[in-house]
């Protein structure tokens, strides 16, 4: 699965197992500017995770890995129609490579569904 790229037409997302670069569209927006719709590369997939009961505390051992950015590059765009004195530049990460790994709370907002 490493280094693979998913497109909406290729492969069956319902049964895909692994972690891959996938197209993602979002609205880059900040106060004082108009939003800009951006399509970029992000990460999506299904990583193998498990939990098993163990005899000692905490009684459950977990191996939880998530599909996240392994290698990124930064891209900066200029947002349209910004007010006077507003910094018009918006920087976002682009996924070069995605992989199953621990959610790094130093660089990542780790959320659950």
């Amino acid at each position: 699965d490493r280094g693979s790229v998913l497109s909406t037409s290729a492969g069956n997302l319902r049964t895909f197992v692994g972690c891959a670069v996938r197209e993602f569209t979002f609205l880059a927006k900040k106060p004082g500017c108009r939003g800009l719709r951006i399509t970029t590369d992000a990460c999506w997939g299904r990583c193998q995770t498990w939990e098993k009961p163990i005899l000692e505390p905490p009684y459950i051992e977990a191996h939880h890995r998530v599909c996240t950015y392994n290698e990124t590059k930064q891209v900066t765009v200029k947002l349209p129609n910004c007010g006077p004195g507003v910094d018009a530049f918006y920087t976002y990460p682009v996924a070069v490579r995605c992989d199953c790994g621990a959610c790094d709370t130093a660089t990542t907002e780790c959320e659950s569904v």
């Binding site: 972690c19 996938r22 993602f24 979002f26 880059a28 927006k29 900040k30 106060p31 970029t40 992000a42 990460c43 999506w44 997939g45 299904r46 990583c47 995770t49 939990e51 977990a62 939880h64 890995r65 998530v66 599909c67 996240t68 950015y69 990124t72 920087t91 976002y92 990460p93 996924a95 995605c98 959610c103 130093a106 660089t107 990542t108 907002e109 780790c110 959320e111 659950s112 569904v113």
Partner: peptide, 26 residues
């Protein structure tokens, strides 16, 4: 699980450290 660029509000709240948001289930 998925990971994508964080919203501006997340960037500001994290002092621009969390530029990636991961939404995951295990």
């Amino acid at each position: 699980s998925s990971a994508f660029p964080s919203r501006y509000s997340v960037l500001v709240a994290s002092s621009y450290r969390h530029n990636i948001t991961s939404v995951s289930q295990c």
